[in-house]
Design a protein around this nucleic acid. Sequence first.
DNA 1: GAATTAGATAGATTTTTTTTATGTCATTTT
DNA 2: AAAATGACATAAAAAAAATCTATCTAATTC
Lengths: 305, 305
Amino acid sequence: MSFSLRQLRHFICIAEHQNISSAARELFLSQPALSTSIVQLEEELGLQLLIRHHARGVSLTPAGNTFLAQARSLVAHAEEVASTGRALGESAQGILEVGCFWTLSPFFLPGLLVLARERHPELEIKVSEGPLNELQKLLHNGNIEMALLYDIDLDPTLARLPLATVKPHVLLPASHPMANRASLSLKSLRDEPFILLDLPHSRDYFLGFFGKLGFQPRVRHRSQSFELVRGLVASGEGYGILNLQPASQQTYDGGKVKCLPIRERMPSLSVVLGHPAGLRQTGRAQAFMRCCQEYFKTTAQSQSV
Amino acid sequence: MSFSLRQLRHFICIAEHQNISSAARELFLSQPALSTSIVQLEEELGLQLLIRHHARGVSLTPAGNTFLAQARSLVAHAEEVASTGRALGESAQGILEVGCFWTLSPFFLPGLLVLARERHPELEIKVSEGPLNELQKLLHNGNIEMALLYDIDLDPTLARLPLATVKPHVLLPASHPMANRASLSLKSLRDEPFILLDLPHSRDYFLGFFGKLGFQPRVRHRSQSFELVRGLVASGEGYGILNLQPASQQTYDGGKVKCLPIRERMPSLSVVLGHPAGLRQTGRAQAFMRCCQEYFKTTAQSQSV
DNA sequence: GAATTAGATAGATTTTTTTTATGTCATTTT
DNA sequence: AAAATGACATAAAAAAAATCTATCTAATTC
């Protein structure tokens, strides 16, 4: 069909040596192999590249000279593509696409991205936020290489790197009589109205708590918004349960909530980095993974257990 | 060692189809062939390019996407090199290196180069002038592809394309008593002094005339310069013999010469286009050849027989 | 739950590349 | 002038690479 890079490399080497035999030595080839290789190249181009001198090597035809420059530039280009290709697999530079489950992002991404910039200034990270199923689709299609997720109802084909576990906490209005205790039993809230964070997976997770305790909560409100749950709690509409807690007790509308550990032993949630199993990670992805581990080992742990 | 252009073409086609099987059909390959080809490419780069979906084709990893752009650009570059390479062999554009024997050049090159420019405006012609042996060396080394020469003592490995034959003429001072004849016998000049153009091959050629006639000329001057021969003739130092005649009878120093056909049948000189035998001609060279034939068939013939 | 789609794998086959052995033609040395 | 040397070409054999056929498996669709 067309010439190969191999043939061009052969031609360049011959042109440099002005001698097929010594070029063959440099290329660790036999002289006839190189000789036929170049004949084929000439036939493919329909162009005489070399003039053969008996007992005195070869020289380039004018056309061969012109073609040599082209060949050199193409081979150099190929070298470049090869090295950037390999770099894509090995080094931590370029663009890394990651995903983040949307209730996690405001808690961890700011710090994580700052750390990543510190560790790998050449690494540009693009984050897609969204619900679990959308992130999983992105992972499968290869739009993102990894995602920060809760390890709950995850596609079993996803590999997980555990980063932290976050325990559930009870949320009470600051004015609530039990708001200043060190911890709280869920049972003691049996008769109080409950504000449920009603998202696809969190729903079952939170309601599952009560099954274990043997009673059903009085659900007064269901909200898909993390902040609305806090706001409703602060305004005295009921108690809430959430795993992550903002640094401030203030709600968006100025109310105040208190956050208490649950005395009963309830299942924690794991925050993980999910990625398609069996897929070789790019160097960028590996670099980001290490950043996540570092970040959660230090900062995050103290912040939100 | 490194990837091949073939692999890159495969990868690009797969990326366009998002599907190995249909890409294989387009490439007239079997699906397994393409599948393994791309696996090898991935291994060579140490980089996952594709994500395989069961029953739904493939998609690109982010790294694959980046690499795709590089692959496209390299393949495009290769296409370009291929086409310019082929053009070097087939079309009449680019630089053509020719040689010209130095006494021929002022007579034919101006008209020839104008004609060539008319016929092939994209063809740039570079001329090397010199003596025969130098031109033959250039031909052998491939520095020039063809040369305009006299067919005299040529290297037998050179192929020749005859363009014209030029007959010898006698040169007399305009004031000479026989200067207005229509033609002249060399014998009638037996006792007059002779001015010899003393160049490697012309020397033997001209002196050979007298051998045939059975006498030796009285050589008064030998000159390596065509114009000096004319000047010496004009100033009355003797008669000369030359094949080609300038349009003007004037010499450089203002003298005047007359030029008469020789009555005896003397060997003519052939003007030929010489080129290394058995070497495939480039398209440029062929185009130039055709120009030479056209030029000598029309203009030149009338000008200088 | 059967049929379909799309990729992977294995063994056989074809094509391409390379090697070994040999030939030829200039050039250099004896 | 003859022999030795250097350098390329050619041919047959061997090795390596690419491709094919057939078969298998996992999701998806009907």
